[in-house]
Simulated scan of single mutants.
Amino acid sequence: MRVTVLTHLEKKGDTKYDVVVDQVAEALRSEKHTVKVLAVHGDVAALIEGIRAQRPGLVFNLVESFGRHFAGEIGVAGALQLLCVRHTGGGPGEYYLQQDKALTKEILAYHGVPFPNYAVFRHDSYPDTSGRLRMPLIVKPLRMDASIGIETDSLVRSATQMMKRIVAIHEKIKDAALVEEYIEGREFYVGVLGNRKPIALPPIEMDFSGLPAGMPRVLGRRAKWVKSSPEYKGTKSKIAEIPNETKLQLQRVALDAYRALRVRDYGRIDLRLTPAGEVYVIEVNASCYLEKSGEFATAAQAAGIRYGSLVNAIAKLALARFRRPY
């Protein structure tokens, strides 16, 4: 069938171009699909015209942003729905719930899924957290992903440090600030694949042992994107070496979060495991990063699912979901 790989990134040769676009396209072509790439960022007319011109049977949606609005991918999912185009990933409603971390936590609470205590500091609303949140705390933007706005000083140990970081997020990121209790312990990522009967992939652990002494064990912006930084050089992900009981516990919580947030086709749940064995959901990442060497594809490989099969399985899941939407 005709498949359009939809991306917000620039065309090949641009420094912003991501190899995941070609990797996904090649995987789809390996199953004899006719694949075209549509790169659109901030131009609604070009998005609509491009989809209509290519007339895809499926859109493989890799869009993570659109224009200057931080919630642009929500609008893209809505446009695909209005165009009656089948696509991977959730619709605008699901993306809206998953992007707002406070709403995410409220839904998790309803379903009994554990997460850290938190408070939201909006530009015009500062809640009283005295006696309710225990230090240390981590302060991050409410709606941003990809660790945007998470820096070394995001981990705070006093009210003064907390307020400075909140103001920085308000002024520089232009977002509300989410303040939550920092969970000491090990960090894991559990990929989930499927809809009606989702499966949890083997857990990936983030190894912080290479960080300089005293540096917070947090995967912030520099650890993800600044290759020359000690944060980037001092962190690495690996297949978790844990007892089977712990593995099953992490996978169970991940599946509960995945279902509660109505993640579609595939996603990744970020978790923390305390020394006492308690598991907390830190973040729910719908339509997570699909690059071959990334955590999700690595976990799939550990489960015996090669990259080409993984990408095509996601496409098949999306097609099946549109045949049976309820």
Rank of each mutant, 00 (worst) to 15 (best):
R2P: 11
V5H: 04
V5M: 06
L6N: 08
L6E: 10
H8D: 13
K16C: 05
D18T: 05
D22N: 00
Q23C: 06
Q23I: 04
E31L: 09
V35F: 15
H41P: 00
D43C: 05
V44R: 07
L47A: 13
G50M: 03
G57Q: 11
L58M: 03
V59C: 02
V63Q: 06
V63L: 12
S65A: 07
F66D: 10
I74L: 08
G75K: 01
A77Y: 13
G89K: 00
G91C: 00
E94W: 04
D100W: 09
K101G: 05
L103W: 13
L103I: 11
K105Q: 07
E106P: 00
V113C: 05
H123V: 15
S125K: 00
P127W: 13
D128V: 13
T129I: 15
S130T: 12
L133K: 09
I138T: 11
V139E: 08
P141E: 05
R143F: 14
M144E: 15
G149C: 06
D153E: 14
V156N: 03
R157P: 06
R157T: 14
R165P: 07
A168F: 15
H170L: 11
K174I: 15
D175H: 03
Y182R: 00
I183S: 07
E184R: 00
G185K: 06
R186H: 11
R186L: 13
G194K: 02
K197H: 12
I199D: 07
P203K: 02
E205L: 03
D207E: 12
S209V: 14
P212N: 03
P212L: 06
A213G: 01
M215L: 09
P216N: 00
G220N: 09
K224S: 09
T235Y: 12
N244M: 11
L248I: 14
Q249F: 08
Q249I: 14
Q251R: 01
V253I: 15
A257I: 09
Y258P: 02
R259T: 13
R264S: 12
D265I: 03
L271T: 09
T274D: 05
V279S: 00
L290R: 03
K292R: 15
S293P: 00
A303F: 06
A303W: 09
G304R: 03
Y307D: 04
L317D: 09
L317V: 10
L319Q: 08
A320F: 10
A320W: 08
F322E: 07
F322L: 03
R323K: 06
R324D: 11
P325R: 01
P325V: 04
Y326N: 05
